[in-house]
């Protein structure tokens, strides 16, 4: 059974159809890149999988481990193992990062019927992961993402990914707003999380990110559909030729 099956998905936002029948299958352990020009529907796909309000699914389905994802609230999806790394992580003043991390982790564990982490175990785990991501401890005491640089915000997303141990990670434009050094640190963090039991969907406009996170499969989206799929070489091909050919094809 596939980990994620998106079948003929049609999605509207305020009466306008954005996805016109999108199909995508992701198996455990695979890394898929979704590329495409602005407005092709890449971010819409990630939002619909995570359960963001404001999108109306008019047709098709999304199965996650064989279950109907569209029937679940966003928090249930998270507890089942879906993680969306936000393109623009929000700032939450007044909620300390540490409090947020523990509350979220324990909420997910509770939803799965697992015992809550003890404080020492939790702290140990956070310290380990944040050290590997080069996240200073004092950052964790601040409000969630408050005053963080673009790179710090993305590293905070990767930190959460490492803590929550999701089986599906969707990285929405992880490279936006990052310089090369920041991108490398974040990408190293992501690569460290690649495992046979975990799949990733990397959404990006640019091929650059895929030099750091090398995908198994590349899909090109245009006008709300996947118009071409292939191996990692497809990304290089796109880099050379651009998206124009697909815009015509779609």
């Amino acid at each position: 059974m596939a980990l994620l099956e998106v079948k003929d998905l049609k999605v509207r936002v305020e009466e306008r159809e954005i996805l016109h029948g999108l199909t995508l299958t992701v198996n455990e352990g695979e890394v898929h890149a979704i590329m495409g020009p602005n407005g092709s529907g890449k971010s819409t796909l990630s939002h619909v999988i995570a359960g963001k309000p404001g999108y109306e699914v008019t047709d098709g389905q999304i199965l996650f481990k064989g279950e109907d994802l569209l029937e679940m609230d966003p928090d249930e999806r998270a507890a089942k193992g879906v993680f969306l790394a936000f393109q623009y992580p929000v700032e939450i003043p007044g909620v300390a990062t540490m409090t947020f991390l523990r509350t979220a982790l324990n909420a997910q564990r509770k939803a799965r019927g697992e015992s809550e982490y003890s404080t020492p175990d939790f702290l140990k785990k956070v310290r380990e992961v944040s050290k590997s991501l080069n996240i200073p401890q004092d950052m964790l005491k601040r409000g969630v993402n408050v005053g963080f640089s673009g790179g710090e915000k993305k590293r905070n997303e990767v930190l959460q990914m490492a803590l929550f141990e999701p089986s599906l990670c969707i990285l929405d434009e992880m490279d936006s707003g990052l310089d090369i050094d920041a991108l490398r640190i974040a990408a190293d963090g992501v690569n460290a999380l690649r495992s046979p039991g975990r799949a990733m969907v990397v959404i990006t406009h640019y091929q650059r990110l895929l030099n750091y996170i090398v995908p198994d499969f590349v899909h090109v989206m245009s006008k709300g559909r996947v118009v071409k799929s292939g191996g990692k070489d497809l990304a290089l091909e796109l880099e050379a030729s651009g998206y124009a050919q697909f815009e015509d094809a779609a």
Binding site: K52, P53, D73, D75, R77, F86, V90, V95, T103, A104
Partner: peptide
Amino acid sequence: DDSLLFYLKARGLPEKQAQALLIQAF
């Protein structure tokens, strides 16, 4: 703020708990 609520829910907090966390912050 809906965008903050969604972020917290996407991290596994049920609606009421997400609201409570934001109210506590306020």
